[in-house]
Structure formats: structure tokens, C-alpha cells
Amino acid sequence: MTFWTVYLSGEIHTDWREEIQQGAEAAGLAVEFTAPVTDHGASDDCGVEILGREDDPFWHDHKGAKLNAIRTRTLIEQADIVVVRFGDKYKQWNAAFDAGYAAALGTPLVVIHPAEHRHALKEVDAAALAVAETPAEVVRLLKYVIDGTL
């Protein structure tokens, strides 16, 4: 049995990742899921916690972003599929970057967002091989591409 690696990028304020993981498990899919650090505080402060304090907020964020990029780039490069969710409440600039990075690598990209974001995300959607509106659609998509069954 071949395991697929699926990287789950995007908003961190809802349980969409868990919905996809539980759905894939219920469907018996051979999938390993990876993701960025979703603890907002840890993600923001990792640079200064590990490499030392910064007085300037720019350098505080810069250190964290670089450490997070090590994880993100590595896991996207290892992924068979990248799923990127754009949520309602916040603008996920990092998610847009992850989508672009996956597209540039030629890694199959699946995007999730509500219908009202179609216009704002039209370029991202154009790079994706599938655009879903719900985690359940992503589970069905994964079942099809992995097992070849509807």
C-alpha cells in the first residue's frame, strides 16, 4: 500500500484539518497529513524563543517567519498534494504564498474557500487542480484520486 502525503495549509481558526483527517480515516485512505505549526503563539514567537529576543517587532516577526519557512518549505516539497484553505475571518497571506509555492513546484494543489471569495482568489484558483468549498468535498476528492473510486 502506498501512502500519500497531504500538506494542509491555511487558516488556523476552525477545525477543517480535523474534518479532513477524520473523513480520510473513516474512508480508509492511506494518507499521512502534515501541516504548519497551528499554535499561533508558538508560530509567532518561535524565532525569539529559540534565537533570542528582538526589540523591533519587524525582526521579531522576521525570525519567526524564517524558522516557520524551514518547516513549511520542507513539508510542501515532500507532499504529494497540497490543500490550502482560505477562511472567512482573516486574510491568509501565508496561505496564498504556500499555494504559489506548491504551484511553482508542480505539486497538485487543491484550494478550499467559500463561494464569495471566488473573485478575490481567481488567480489562486486558476493554479489549482481543484477548488472545493468544504472539507467533505476534499475527502471525496482524496478518495477518488487515491483509490480511484467515487
Rank of each mutant, 00 (worst) to 15 (best):
L129P: 04
E25G: 06
H62Y: 11
V83T: 06
Y90V: 12
P57F: 03
I20N: 02
S43T: 10
H60G: 00
A24Y: 08
E18G: 11
F58A: 14
H117L: 07
I50L: 15
V131F: 05
K91L: 11
A130P: 08
P36Y: 09
A35R: 11
G87A: 12
L105V: 02
A79M: 13
E49H: 15
R118K: 12
E25Y: 06
A127E: 12
D44A: 04
A103Q: 02
H119C: 03
A99G: 01
L121G: 14
A132P: 13
T107C: 15
L75G: 02
R17Y: 10
A69R: 02
D98Y: 06
I81E: 04
E54F: 10
E49D: 06
R17H: 03
V82N: 14
P108C: 15
H117G: 01
D39T: 09
A95R: 09
A128S: 11
K91E: 15
T107A: 04
V131P: 05
A132E: 10
H113Y: 00
A103W: 02
I20T: 06
D39N: 11
Q22G: 10
E123S: 12
A115Y: 07
P36D: 00
E49F: 12
I20W: 02
A95T: 06
A65L: 01
G100L: 01
Q22T: 12
K66V: 04
F97L: 01
W93H: 08
R71Y: 01
